[in-house]
């Protein structure tokens, strides 16, 4: 999340016409920054000897519009999975189809939900030019996958303004509301409006992370929270961030065992509803 937030902050400064010099980068991160051609001549990045020991593999993307979101989510999930050696114990016994279902699909699932969240909630309320950044890291020895989506939009608190029924008075309240099932700022916007969210996207992402022995972290406004609305919830004050930064950690061996049907069934109010499947 820190690297993704740094990229978002650099991009914001670039938009303001500032020259930025960043020193002490790992060669991997420097390469990724240079690949993001938005910076042009305004960014001067320098590696450091100390950072050359960085072990993870990193991908950073900029989501410019809703049109790009699904494609980028798929590409970044594929790119991450391609980094996992086929000899890794968590994947070596899996057929390609099963490997896609148990690893690539949950990663793309989380990315699409977080991108949607950032673009649809972060923009608006005077933040129509907000940008959305993604980063993904794979740490091979521990089978640890880290995903982050950062935007410089309106943030969780402003998103819930106007929902008096939710009693959201602080950034921490707003984070909790965002992860509570069936709670969305766009849930009750109008009877015939097309865009009415269910308020389940972040909830399911969090459940996927926790069942893979991972975690979810959120920074928005002056609040930083880990695993919102869960037993192990932890929160503290954070340096102010205008927008929202979400990070999800997943652990590869446990991700294989995640029962997606069990996660979705928990929130189903009528599991016996007759639907015609052929």
């Amino acid at each position: 999340m820190a690297l993704c937030t740094l990229v978002a902050a650099l991009a914001r400064m670039q938009r303001l016409g500032r020259e930025v010099e960043v020193v002490g980068l790992s060669s991997e991160f420097k390469r990724q920054l240079e690949k993001l051609d938005i910076f042009g001549q305004s960014l001067h990045a320098a590696e450091s000897e100390k950072s050359r020991t960085y072990q993870g593999t990193l991908h950073v993307y900029w989501v410019k519009s809703e049109r790009d979101g699904n494609d980028i989510a798929n590409r970044i999930a594929d790119a991450l999975v391609s980094l996992i050696p086929s000899s890794h114990p968590a994947v070596s016994a899996l057929e390609p189809v099963k490997r896609y279902k148990t690893i690539t699909f949950p990663l793309a699932y989380i990315f699409t939900e977080l991108i949607d969240n950032a673009l649809r909630h972060g923009r608006g309320r005077g933040y129509d030019q907000a940008s959305v950044w993604l980063s993904a890291q794979y740490h091979s020895p521990r089978g640890l996958i880290r995903l982050a989506v950062v935007d410089d939009g309106c943030g969780f608190l402003q998103t819930f303004q106007g929902r008096d029924d939710l009693r959201v008075r602080s950034h921490a309240d707003a984070i909790r509301a965002g992860f509570r099932p069936f709670t969305s700022s766009k849930r009750d916007v109008g009877l015939f409006a097309d865009t009415q969210h269910q308020g389940l996207g972040l909830t399911i992402c969090r459940d996927l992370a926790l069942r893979s022995e991972g975690s979810v972290s959120v920074v928005t406004g002056n609040s930083w929270m880990i695993n919102p609305e869960m037993e192990g919830e932890h929160s503290r004050a954070a340096p102010f961030w205008q927008g929202a930064a979400l990070s999800v950690e997943l652990r590869l061996p446990a991700l294989n065992a995640v029962n997606f049907i069990e996660i979705t069934s928990r929130y189903n109010p009528d599991p016996d509803l007759p639907i015609r499947f052929v």
Binding site: K101, Q198, L200, I261, T264, S265, P269, P271, R276, F277
Partner: peptide, 19 residues
Amino acid sequence: VFLRCSEDTQAILKLVFAT
């Protein structure tokens, strides 16, 4: 009518429709 749905897709369809 829904054709060729995986078990995961069926679970998601059931959740969305019931909700």
